[in-house]
Amino acid sequence: MQAFVKTLTGKTITLEVEPSDTIENVKAKIQDKEGIPPDQQRLIFAGKQLEDGRTLSDYNIQKESTLHLVLR
């Protein structure tokens, strides 16, 4: 499924993900596309910070959801 990641600069990245993907996995995909190390990434969805060990389905993130990427 497709999900979108919006950065603070307003850029939107499109990712191909599965509901079973972990947040860690998603961060690795963002690193592949953008070169941002996962340890600098914080992903926010519905106002919550997403934890590495959880999956997209844990957070009820469905296709075409938009996550927000904040860098630390």
Rank of each mutant, 00 (worst) to 15 (best):
M1W: 12
M1T: 04
Q2V: 15
Q2R: 15
Q2L: 15
Q2T: 15
Q2I: 15
Q2E: 07
A3E: 02
A3V: 15
A3N: 03
A3L: 15
A3S: 04
F4L: 07
F4V: 08
F4Q: 05
V5S: 01
K6Y: 09
K6T: 12
K6A: 07
K6M: 11
K6D: 04
K6I: 14
K6P: 02
K6N: 06
T7M: 15
L8W: 15
L8K: 11
L8F: 13
T9D: 14
T9F: 13
T9P: 04
G10I: 02
G10A: 03
G10P: 02
G10T: 03
G10C: 06
G10K: 03
K11W: 09
K11E: 08
T12N: 05
T12Q: 07
T12I: 15
I13F: 12
I13W: 06
I13V: 06
I13A: 02
I13K: 01
I13L: 09
I13P: 00
T14Y: 09
T14S: 10
T14W: 08
T14I: 14
T14M: 12
T14A: 09
T14C: 09
L15G: 01
L15W: 01
L15K: 00
E16K: 09
E16M: 14
V17F: 05
V17S: 01
V17H: 01
V17R: 00
V17A: 03
E18D: 12
P19H: 07
P19A: 10
P19S: 09
S20G: 12
S20H: 11
S20F: 11
D21Q: 04
D21R: 02
D21P: 01
T22E: 03
T22K: 08
T22C: 04
T22D: 03
I23Q: 01
I23F: 02
E24M: 13
E24C: 08
N25Y: 11
N25Q: 14
N25W: 10
V26R: 00
V26I: 13
V26A: 02
K27S: 01
K27L: 04
K27A: 02
K27G: 01
A28F: 13
A28V: 12
A28G: 09
K29W: 04
K29G: 02
K29M: 13
I30R: 01
I30T: 01
Q31H: 14
Q31N: 10
Q31K: 10
Q31W: 15
Q31P: 01
D32F: 12
D32W: 10
D32V: 13
D32N: 11
D32E: 14
D32R: 13
D32P: 02
K33R: 10
E34N: 10
E34Q: 07
E34R: 05
G35C: 05
G35H: 06
G35E: 03
G35D: 05
G35F: 04
I36V: 08
I36K: 02
I36M: 05
I36E: 02
P37E: 07
P37L: 07
P37R: 09
P37V: 05
P37D: 08
P38E: 07
P38Q: 13
P38K: 15
P38H: 10
D39H: 13
D39K: 11
D39A: 13
D39Q: 12
D39C: 11
D39E: 13
Q40E: 11
Q40N: 10
Q40K: 12
Q40C: 11
Q40V: 11
Q40L: 12
Q40Y: 09
Q41K: 01
Q41S: 04
Q41E: 01
R42W: 11
R42K: 11
R42L: 15
R42F: 14
R42E: 12
L43S: 00
L43Y: 02
L43D: 00
I44S: 10
I44R: 06
F45H: 07
F45L: 06
F45A: 03
F45R: 03
F45D: 01
F45N: 02
A46H: 14
A46T: 05
A46Q: 15
A46L: 12
G47D: 06
G47T: 04
G47A: 04
K48I: 14
K48N: 10
K48L: 13
Q49V: 15
L50C: 04
L50A: 02
L50S: 01
L50N: 00
L50Q: 01
L50Y: 01
E51V: 09
E51A: 08
E51F: 07
D52Y: 04
D52P: 06
D52M: 05
D52F: 04
D52G: 06
G53N: 12
G53K: 12
G53Q: 11
G53M: 09
G53T: 10
R54D: 05
R54V: 06
R54S: 07
T55K: 10
T55Q: 07
T55E: 03
L56A: 02
L56C: 02
L56P: 00
L56R: 00
S57N: 10
S57K: 12
S57M: 12
S57L: 11
S57Y: 10
S57G: 11
D58P: 00
D58Q: 08
D58A: 05
D58H: 11
D58E: 11
D58K: 03
Y59D: 00
Y59M: 03
Y59R: 00
N60T: 05
N60I: 06
N60Q: 09
N60S: 08
N60M: 08
I61P: 03
I61R: 02
I61N: 02
I61M: 06
Q62V: 14
Q62N: 11
K63V: 08
K63D: 15
K63Q: 12
K63I: 07
K63A: 15
E64V: 06
E64A: 08
E64Q: 10
S65T: 10
S65N: 08
S65G: 07
S65R: 06
T66Q: 07
T66V: 14
L67A: 02
L67I: 13
L67F: 09
H68G: 05
H68P: 02
H68Q: 10
H68V: 13
H68M: 13
H68K: 07
L69S: 01
L69W: 01
V70N: 05
V70E: 12
V70H: 10
V70W: 10
L71P: 09
L71K: 07
L71D: 06
L71W: 09
R72I: 14
R72P: 11
R72H: 12
R72T: 13
